[in-house]
């Protein structure tokens, strides 16, 4: 990278330091103008709020009242002693725990299945990606109807296979898996596209050599294809983890904005939303948001550390 920057340095070619510094200061002003929009947006809507959110958690901030008093760790303490906070944390982790392995396994399985030439497979790839671009609220309507215990399609399918019906979103044990089902439907296509493009990069000769050496299909998959996919899978694991900790729209839509039944789909982000924008406890919500951020950073760090054990770089 450094080398490329130096190479593109037009002034360096001229080779005269004085001219160079004059040009530098002239270009400096132009650069400021060009950079201004991005820098202003980033400063006002990222850096300032990031600094503020640290402060908000430590103060009692009232939306309408003028009284802003120092609270110290009170908000963090009350968050950590609030049973619903722990419940929400548990549900957040549970959701991610469902989503990450299912997304990775599902994406690899589907990608292997549809990684073939021809119009037919191209059409299937289109269908798999289609849900990804649909709006979450609008498409969760159809799913709500499919989840309906009495008239929904899903219970009809269970009935068809002679399986007992489920209460789906109305049961506190099945509500979260139901949300997971929706999220998989909506997001898998994106992951499949990424795995497909990684599969295209698997060198054909290596794979054929293994075949010539008498490796079975399973052996070729586990010994050749899968190790070569690990960098991509690591990327998807990180993205899916962060994405599931930030899931909101589908949980809001499928639980009717409540996070129910009995808090079964209340995740941290939903709890933060309710605390801040339905009950207007801003500082309290900000303290919880800080804890969620800490969780995200911690998980990203752990994944990075673990990746050294399983990711194979060529």
């Amino acid at each position: 990278m450094q080398a490329r920057i130096a190479e593109s340095d037009w002034a360096a070619r001229v080779g005269r330091n004085a001219a160079r510094s004059r040009r530098r200061s002239r270009e400096g002003w132009r650069a400021v103008l060009f950079l201004l929009p991005t820098v202003v947006f980033v400063a006002v809507f990222v850096y300032a709020p990031a600094a503020m959110s640290l402060a908000l958690g430590f103060y009692h901030y009232h939306l309408l009242g003028a009284r802003t008093t120092f609270a110290g760790l009170a908000d963090f303490r009350s968050a950590l002693t609030y049973p619903i906070f722990w419940l929400a944390l548990e549900h957040t982790l549970l959701y991610a725990l469902y989503m990450v392995p299912l997304t990775l396994a599902g994406a690899v399985a589907i990608a292997l299945l549809i990684d073939a030439q021809g119009r037919f497979y191209a059409a299937i790839r289109t269908l798999v990606l289609l849900p990804y671009i649909t709006p979450v609220i609008a498409t969760s309507i159809g799913w709500l109807w499919m989840f309906n215990p009495q008239y929904g399609v899903l219970n009809a399918v269970l009935h068809w296979f002679n399986l007992p019906p489920s209460q789906w979103l109305l049961s506190s044990s099945m509500a979260m898996p139901s949300v997971v089902l929706y999220s998989l439907w909506h997001g898998l296509g994106f992951n499949v596209v990424i795995v497909l493009s990684a599969l295209a990069g698997v060198p054909r000769p290596v794979w054929e050599a293994a075949a010539v050496d008498g490796a079975t299909g399973w052996q070729r998959f586990f010994r050749v294809t899968l190790p070569l996919l690990t960098p991509t899978l690591f990327f998807l694991a990180v993205v899916t983890t962060i994405g599931s900790l930030q899931a909101f729209s589908q949980i809001y839509a499928l639980s009717g904005g409540t996070g129910g039944p009995e808090y079964a789909t209340t995740t941290l982000l939903l709890l933060i939303y309710q605390t801040a924008f339905q009950y207007f406890h801003f500082s309290y919500a900000a303290a919880m948001a800080m804890l969620l951020v800490a969780l995200i950073l911690m998980l990203t760090f752990i994944q990075n550390w673990l990746s050294k054990r399983w990711v194979f770089y060529q």
Binding site: P49, S53, I272
Partner: peptide, 17 residues
């Protein structure tokens, strides 16, 4: 560095801003 800051941290302060 902005990529490292999760959006959740910005939700409430951005509302205030």
């Amino acid at each position: 560095i902005v990529l490292m800051i999760p959006a959740e941290a910005l939700l409430i302060p951005n509302y205030v801003i």
